[in-house]
Structure formats: C-alpha cells, structure tokens
C-alpha cells in the first residue's frame, strides 16, 4: 500500500477510505466473500441436481430431492428443534443473570468465574462429549440414575456449550449500558431484583434476543457433543446428515441443508428488525 499522502484539505470520506478501497484490499474482500459464500451457493445449486450422485455438470435438474428430504429427516429434525429450544431457553435462564453479574460486579472473583464460564468455548467439542459420556456412566454406576443417553444430560451438555455465547453477547450489550437509571431506581427504593427486572433486562432486550438465537443455533448445529450423548434410536439432524453421508452422497443432503438455510434465514430476518444481530459476536 502506497504512502503518497493526499493533501489534507482534499480529504473526504472516499479518500479517507482510499487505502482500504484500493484494488489490493478489494481483492481481499472478494476472496473472503467467495470463501464464505461459495460452498453455500454450491449447496443450493447441487440440491436441484437430478442425478443420484453429485457429478458436475449434472445430467438434469429437478425438485424431487426436496420432496424426499423432509420425510427422511423429519424425526431427527424435530429432535434437534426440541433440543435447541430447551438448551437455548435454559441457557438464557442461567446465562443472562451471569452476564449481568459479570458486568456489574468486577473483581478478582467474578473475573475468575467469568473465565470459567467462557471456557467451554475453548475446549474441543469431541473431548467434552466423550468426557461427559464417560463421567455420566461413572455417576450412573454409583447412583443408579439413568444418566447415559438421557435427554436431560444431552440438554445440559448443550447448555454448557451455549452458555459462553449467551454471556459474551450479554456482556457486549451491557458495555454501553448506563448505570445511572439503575442507581436512580435503587435510590427511589426499588429492590435489586426489581431494578434488574424493570431497568436492566429491558435495556438488554436486543442482547437477550440475539443471545437466545445464537444459543439455539449453536445447539441446533452441534455434532461433536451430541454424537455420544444421544440415546439409542434417537438422532439429531447433524448426526443424521453425517450418517447419511457415510452411505450416500446425493443431492438429498444438499436439499435438506437448503431447507435449513432458508428456515434459519427467515427467522433471522424476522428477528433482525428488533435485534442488531450484527453486533452479537463481539
């Protein structure tokens, strides 16, 4: 990138961005966007292939895969939805209060707990999944509680991996939060729970919607944790897709994926009006 300075007086928005607008930067932008969107676009394209195997170019096009994909995957799809709703809901219930506490009370203790609560994000999913499974069996052996393969354990495991997202997003949505209103409410005699209910939570509304959505999605697409924790005969959508892939690689998989993309896109755009999801990953 060149360092030739334009004269100070001629600076407008476009020139100010000039160095980032140069061909080099544009090439980076384009390559980045291609890397992200190419596989998605190709998945949509493949879902219309007529052939039984995915070969490029296709012999013809059809919508038949959409028709057959739903009956094939309906049961795992429902399991995944139920799981993601339960895990997302519980994760909000546990995560939002934690987020509030972490942003309000900052000391060594809460800092340590904050690190702990964000830790599930940093650990390989496959290792947590295996460890929880073996741990559940150890506990079951001593307590006779039917833990291994129970829905409760699966939901809790998903809560574990979604909590860091809820907390991250809540913390982000509270960074610019003005404590003055809270202090005013408190000085007027409102009890702390009432302050949270009446002042803090409404101020966090967007953050809560966004984090609930993220929790739902992280749970919905999780493969590694569920792999070991599903009960016999139960399957989630990502597991069902992986198992299907082991025996067949046909456009059916693409079709169910497109339906998934469209469904998620629809929810996103519906929520997008009142929650700035773009800010969430901070």
């Amino acid at each position: 990138m060149s360092d030739t300075a334009p004269s100070a007086s001629s600076l407008g928005l476009t020139e100010k961005l000039e160095w980032l607008a140069r061909p080099g930067a544009t090439a980076l932008v384009v390559s980045g966007l291609i890397t992200v969107f190419a596989p998605l676009i190709l998945t949509v394209y493949v879902s219309f292939f007529d052939d039984k195997v995915i070969v490029f170019p296709p012999q013809g096009y059809s919508l038949a895969w959409y028709g057959s994909s739903i009956p094939q995957f309906i049961s795992p799809l429902l399991t995944s939805l139920k799981l993601a709703l339960l895990a997302g809901g519980l994760s909000l219930l546990f995560g939002v209060p934690a987020g509030i506490a972490l942003s309000r009370y900052r000391n060594r203790g809460t800092q340590g707990i904050g690190t702990l609560l964000l830790a599930p994000l940093t650990i390989p999913g496959i290792a947590i999944g295996l460890a929880i499974y073996v741990f559940a069996i150890t506990v079951e052996l001593r307590t006779e509680l039917p833990l291994a393969g129970s829905m409760a354990l699966l939901v809790l495991a998903h809560v574990l991996i979604t909590i860091p997202w809820v907390i991250r997003i809540c913390l982000a949505s509270l960074t610019n939060h003005d404590r003055v209103t809270e202090e005013a409410a408190a000085s007027l005699g409102a009890s702390p729970p009432r302050v949270i209910w009446r002042v803090t939570l409404p101020a966090m509304r967007n953050g809560i919607v966004a984090s609930g959505f993220f929790a739902f999605i992280i749970s919905f697409e999780n493969l590694e944790i569920s792999l070991f924790l599903v009960s016999p005969g139960m399957s989630t959508l990502p597991i069902a897709i992986l198992q299907y892939l082991e025996y067949r690689l046909d456009p059916l998989i693409a079709a169910i994926s497109v339906l998934q993309i469209v469904g998620i896109g629809a929810i996103l755009f519906a929520l997008g009006n009142f929650a700035n999801l773009g800010r969430v990953a901070r």
């Binding site: 499974y133 069996i137 052996l141 291994a148 070991f228 009960s231 016999p232």
Partner: peptide, 14 residues
C-alpha cells in the same frame, strides 16, 4: 465404544 463404556452398568441401553 458405547458398548464398552456401558459394559460396567447393570442395565445396558441396547
């Protein structure tokens, strides 16, 4: 792997 892990339990799932 699941069969091995569960073999110590009194009641197996499969």
């Amino acid at each position: 792997a699941k069969t091995i892990a569960q073999r110590i339990l009194p009641r197996g799932a499969v």
